[in-house]
Design a protein around this nucleic acid. Structure first.
Lengths: 345, 345
DNA sequence: CTGTTAGCGCTTTCAT
DNA sequence: ATGAAAGCGCTAACAG
């Protein structure tokens, strides 16, 4: 595997080309202050010798690595994979590479990963999902590099930049879609309530919508899952075969929502005739199920892209208007709900 | 965002602790040749000063970055996301970080990314998907670091390490599942035939199975898609509403296969009663559809994990038995086919 | 067990 | 337009 080949450095190129290291450096970095003929000569030697600049040495000397760290809960989860794609595309566009780390939402792992990334001298950091605790803030504060939150926010540190959507509002609107269909019993399949990013705010939106509609909150119509398909299938089965089975379900993410659709169908119920279901996220699965899932369309790719773009601005000291951005979501009514028009509040 | 803070180095720690840089370095790197009391003192100073080792400087001095490059077609594609998770988990376990790059299977982009990763002095490289061309081989050969292929292989360079499955054989077996049900017209929804990783070998497996069964290959029963759901939906609709509509379909990946299931259902056909369908990959979608999709279960996570583990062996000069590994796949018969027992050849 | 001393390969003033 | 030289922060012999 080609071991042991002596590495050829900028010094070797300089010697062969009969110029100084500085000049080779200028050529490599596209500095215009090089006579065209010199540039050509150097370029030729570089080609001949197969010289490849050492980015680590460059990083040490210039204090820039053109690498950003990305801490993400789980890349195998469709929602985050899509987000990551947005991040990487923009990073690539600005000539950055990303070091991708899965945190599984574990605080200790998050902290350890953030530290490791800072040690690697990333030029910036994107932190996704997971709660921002005091320990996070401490590390963030001690870091020299810009850090942007994506798909989450820090309610304590009011200054921390972020890119996400208004979770509570979106959840409220999703619930209203069902309430507007005239259901008496609108159930909820939620996520863990300690989860400050999904579980809690979407639960809150549900409750607020009920309150606004003057419908009493009924604990018996609520089940909490772990955001995975099986969990949606399971909890929906419970709910739909319970005594006061809801005739409409707000499920806080698509994966569980599709599970809920199948639960209903397995119980012999028609969706949306017997039970209306609305999800949240708009992952591709939402359009790969029958009936097509109505859902809150979260601009996942854009959240990643915008967050990365924001980060590049910090890294290049560009002027920034909005340090904290709430992206628009869309209510995407398909065939798992009855109403076809978007009701505004 | 905490800019401008003077960076504190190993030298500062050494001074404060009244020891040499070398000793601090030893402490930081867990070198046992340090008197416990000295270690403790240094550790305290490190803590007090909030010293964070600079991995870039370390990388330059030690010629090791504990970072590996990963070139992957598209992280937002479930198959690769799962693979990436396997890669990252093992990388993490061995204290490596991964730089993740999407290539979209574009040759030029692949080459450019590989070069960028090598410039960044990654300790190793994982290359997934995409054809390995002569230009790839040239760069690989000129590189100093180990390079392992995952989910693909190089049929020209017989020495290039890889971890994947036997695509042709698996496709053959998938087709046999359908043939064994006694169908006269077994159709194929394939991928691009120029794709040497999925499209071509799985097509080959299909043809070979027909040949073995003494069934004549009929071009009219074949459609090629782009591996995405919509494409499966579309091509299956064509095929199933054509004159000699097949009564069984081998679809070369799950996403298209689920599209095919829905196409059949949209046409009022029952799966598997009117048409049997078998997919390939076993992404989570396969178990999130009704009927549950029968498929070739590819150990995606394991391919990533094993490839990464193999790479660590190269990086640490560990002895290696198998430089090229074909992982086992499983035939996962669910409800989109009729037969419930695995037929061996 | 600890310190000294060279670099690692490149960028970056500062001269010229 | 080009060169000389001083680091960047750390590891790795080599002494002692």
């Amino acid at each position: 595997m080609g071991k042991k080949k002596e590495t050829i450095t900028i010094y070797d190129v300089a010697r062969e080309a009969g110029v100084s290291m500085a000049t080779v450096s200028r050529v490599v970095n596209g500095n215009p202050n090089v006579k065209p003929i010199t540039r050509k000569k150097v370029l030729n030697i570089i080609q001949e010798m197969g010289y490849r600049p050492n980015a680590v040495a460059r990083g040490l000397a210039s204090k820039k690595t053109t690498t950003v760290g990305v801490v993400i809960p789980d890349i195998s989860y469709a929602f985050f994979a899509e987000l990551a794609r947005g991040i990487e595309d923009i990073a690539n566009m600005y000539h950055y590479n990303i070091i991708l780390c899965n945190s599984d939402l574990k605080k200790e792992k998050e902290l350890q990963l953030i530290n490791a990334l800072l040690e690697k001298q990333v030029d910036g950091l994107l932190f996704l999902g997971g709660e921002v605790t005091e320990e996070h803030r401490e590390i963030f504060a001690g870091s020299q590099v810009p850090i942007v939150l994506a798909a989450t926010r820090d309610d304590v540190d009011a200054k921390r930049p972020f890119v996400t959507i208004d979770q509570v509002q979106a959840a409220k609107e999703a619930t209203h879609v069902l309430l507007n269909e005239g259901h008496e019993r609108v159930g909820l399949i939620g996520g863990p309530l300690k989860d400050p990013i999904i579980g809690y705010p979407r639960f809150l939106g549900y409750k607020e919508a009920l309150a606004e509609a003057g419908v009493e909150f009924d604990e018996d119509l609520v089940r909490l899952g772990n955001l995975r398909y099986d969990s949606g299938l399971q909890t929906a089965k419970e709910l739909l075969s319970s005594e006061k089975s809801p005739t409409a379900l707000f499920v806080v993410n698509d994966e569980m929502a599709v599970g809920a659709i199948h639960a209903a169908q397995d119980l012999g119920k028609k969706v949306p005739d017997d039970v209306s279901i609305i999800g949240f996220d708009n992952i591709s699965l939402a359009s790969q199920v029958r009936p097509l899932l109505s859902t809150i369309a979260v601009p996942m790719y854009d959240i990643g892209a915008v967050a990365m773009r924001l980060l590049t601005k910090y890294m290049n000291d560009e002027p920034i208007e909005n340090h904290q951005v709430l992206l628009q979501y869309r209510i995407d009514l398909a065939n798992s709900t009855k109403l076809k028009e978007i009701e505004s509040e």
